[in-house]
Amino acid sequence: MRKKKGLKLDGWLIIDKPPGFTSAHVVAKVKRMTQAAKIGHAGTLDPLATGILPLALGEATKTVAYAMDGAKTYRFTIRWGERRDSDDAEGAVVATSDARPDRAAIAALLPGFRGDIMQVPPVYSALKIDGERAYDLARRGEAPVLEARPIRIDRFDLIDMPDADHAVFEVDCGKGSYIRALARDLGEGLGCHGHIVALRRTRVGPFREEQAFSLEKLGELWENPPSSDTLLPVETALDDIPALAVTGPQADRLRSGQEIRVVNRDDGISRVMNAGTLVALAEIEDGQVRPVRVFNL
């Protein structure tokens, strides 16, 4: 018997991920709820973490890379006095300290964590070393050696210090930044160790917390009758790419892989629109528009 293909649904669905779920688990649950034929996510969240997990349905999967390249915002709590092998509360304690930082010490250190910096990822990460995930090596006790990588931190602010053992921070960062590693390195820099005990993502590129649905609410909305009103347009992930309006015939040419010509346009990637519908991502060079990714909407 041929496997049922599922519904053709195109757009972005923003989930407020609960703790204890992997990103893959959320994708599987939402796929069952919506019966979507194709679905993927834009940026993994650790099981410990909560917050927005953008899901791409149908043609939106073609824009996932653009969403993942966008800036992200996290709010997190560090527990001082313990370093853990996973750099979060789920790992084993590997070092302790009785020292506790004050607000002045933290404020003095934070500027060194802003801007373009180098960061060693956590050993419990999905990065591959000779074809194996670092976390698989770590679980076998093989202590993977990970090289420092460049990352971008646009904002790193101390928000609250509820007690001597904890501090709450917010960070705006670029692709590839590990918040667990920031907590680890800040604790080491302060001479007191530290690890993440709470982590919430509040922004991924153009996607915000207020656009997110809990799994429970989503289940209600898609139950009876199913509702696609929860979907954001495919082009939401492309909002920082210049738009190019084209005519119907021009749109048809681009969809069939043919080039068109325009005047008075700068070179570079453009988001091609026709009557409010996304047609393609196209490369413009000397007025020649070449489709590089076509959308079937």
Results as ranks from 00 to 15, higher is better:
residue 101 P to A: 01
residue 116 D to H: 14
residue 105 A to E: 02
residue 49 A to R: 03
residue 155 R to P: 07
residue 88 D to P: 09
residue 14 I to F: 03
residue 130 D to G: 08
residue 19 P to H: 11
residue 190 L to P: 01
residue 211 Q to T: 07
residue 133 R to Y: 11
residue 178 Y to D: 00
residue 18 P to Q: 09
residue 38 K to Y: 02
residue 273 M to G: 10
residue 70 G to N: 07
residue 91 G to N: 04
residue 287 G to K: 14
residue 268 G to I: 08
residue 71 A to N: 13
residue 223 E to W: 12
residue 92 A to R: 15
residue 280 A to D: 11
residue 226 P to M: 05
residue 199 L to R: 01
residue 296 N to A: 12
residue 68 M to V: 15
residue 189 G to M: 02
residue 160 D to K: 10
residue 184 R to L: 11
residue 59 E to Y: 07
residue 16 D to Q: 14
residue 188 E to D: 13
residue 133 R to D: 03
residue 277 T to K: 11
residue 26 V to E: 01
residue 27 V to F: 00
residue 103 R to E: 06
residue 220 E to V: 05
residue 122 P to R: 12
residue 151 I to N: 06
residue 144 P to C: 11
residue 246 V to M: 13
residue 146 L to E: 05
residue 191 G to C: 06
residue 164 A to N: 07
residue 149 R to I: 11
residue 190 L to C: 02
residue 188 E to S: 11
residue 173 C to S: 07
residue 142 E to L: 10
residue 282 A to S: 14
residue 209 E to V: 12
residue 47 P to S: 06
residue 25 H to R: 15
residue 254 L to R: 04
residue 150 P to Q: 10
residue 79 R to M: 09
residue 244 L to R: 02
residue 68 M to F: 09
residue 82 E to P: 01
residue 194 G to N: 01
residue 51 G to P: 04
residue 104 A to P: 07
residue 55 L to E: 00
residue 166 H to M: 12
residue 177 S to I: 02
residue 239 D to M: 13
residue 54 P to K: 06
residue 29 K to F: 10
residue 122 P to A: 15
residue 44 T to Q: 08
residue 96 T to R: 09
residue 200 R to Y: 09
residue 107 A to P: 08
residue 268 G to E: 10
residue 169 F to P: 04
residue 281 L to Q: 07
residue 137 L to S: 04
residue 76 F to V: 06
residue 245 A to W: 14
residue 15 I to M: 03
residue 52 I to Y: 00
residue 102 D to R: 09
residue 158 L to A: 13
residue 117 I to M: 00
residue 12 W to F: 11
residue 99 A to C: 15
residue 283 E to C: 05
residue 59 E to C: 13
residue 204 V to F: 00
residue 20 G to T: 13
residue 95 A to W: 03
residue 115 G to S: 02
residue 55 L to F: 06
residue 130 D to Q: 10
residue 28 A to E: 02
residue 182 L to F: 04
residue 215 L to W: 00
residue 14 I to K: 01
residue 227 S to R: 09
residue 142 E to I: 02
residue 29 K to H: 15
residue 92 A to H: 14
residue 13 L to E: 01
residue 57 L to P: 03
residue 239 D to Y: 14
residue 31 K to N: 04
residue 116 D to G: 08
residue 294 V to D: 02
residue 120 V to I: 15
residue 7 L to H: 10
residue 56 A to C: 13
residue 80 W to R: 02
residue 57 L to N: 03
residue 222 W to Y: 13
residue 118 M to K: 15
residue 93 V to P: 04
residue 191 G to L: 08
residue 176 G to Q: 12
residue 251 A to G: 14
residue 217 K to H: 15
residue 147 E to I: 10
residue 67 A to C: 07
